[in-house]
Amino acid sequence: MEGLKECEANLVVYLHPSKAKCAGDAILSELSSLLFTYNETFEGVVLAYDPNICSNLAKILPGIQPYFGVKLKARLLLFNPKPDMVVEGEVVKITPQSIHAVVLGFSSAFIADEDIRHDFKHKIKRGKEVYVSRTHKKHKIKVGTTLRFIVKSFDEEILHISGSLVADHTGCARWLDKNLDEWSQADSTIKKRKSGEGEHEKPRSDRLMVQREILSLENDGQVKKAKKKKKNIVES
């Protein structure tokens, strides 16, 4: 995942005189106020900090309130997704027109249907919405999947990412990692047969499908879909 970087910052934190007794805590709370907001100085969203106070001496600002400045070096973890970076997030919602994900637990990502490559088809399986790749049936995106996608834009105000799944190296992160050779060699126009690894897994998932079918038989109404599902698997 891109977009994360660590940096070392030289900071001066100005503290209210009333905080003189507990400067350490006050520094931490000042730094905490940076969290989860986009900071132009650092060019990113501060996710974590590790302050290192350089000296016990502080500079006192003249004024009605004699604020004192403490110098410190802090290692900061920053998040700054830029267009074309590849980031990952957890899928939280799928609709026929969009995929919604949450990146790093706080930043929402939206992928509109124009940005989902044609290879992915929206389906409803057992009442749950999924995107399934037409070429690789095992490549699925459902709620809970870790999704790898490309950043199209980033709204610094509300930390909203607009993403894209057009490129081949995007989709379900787990599948992509496992089946590196498949998609990396694949020309998007040529359908590739499954590699040995994929075959290996097939029997197991077939069993799963059977089980699922039994389960779904119990829900009336769902029977037909379940059968179709099975057909698909056999064909593939």
Binding site: F110, I158, H160
Partner: peptide, 11 residues
């Protein structure tokens, strides 16, 4: 849908 499609609509 609106709120999640773009940061502008959240508020």
């Amino acid at each position: 849908s609106l709120a999640s499609s773009s940061g502008e609509y959240v508020d």
